[in-house]
Amino acid sequence: MMTLTIGLVALMVLADAASDILVARAMKQIGEVTSFRPRALVGTLARMFRSPSFTAGIGAAAIHFFTFLALLSFVGLSTVFPATALVYVVATAGAQLILKEHVSLRRWAGVSLVCTGMILVSMT
């Protein structure tokens, strides 16, 4: 049971981070949104849903959601919820390695504090 829990937690965190990274990649490919008029926003939404990265991101978000539900069926929220904070570290590493973002040491320090704080908040 322990191995299954660790495996599902890893899948949940990876799927959540993958969702963020894929959506970010899709939005970079679409280009900066500069007009917020309804017609322009509808056009942006249409381009988003035609982007393979964006739809893959939605798929990864669905995997994250159902893995989260599956975990809740046999371990408590107090076990699952702190683990979700790991997504900040994993997504930042993905942004640096896959999206080639420049992540300074100061930003890493901030991300680490956020992750630690989220773990404390989610502990019951």
Binding site: K28, V33, Y88, A91, A95, L99, R107, V114
Partner: peptide
Amino acid sequence: SWTDLSLALP
């Protein structure tokens, strides 16, 4: 669409 994920997410 215009900023880094490593900035927006935290």
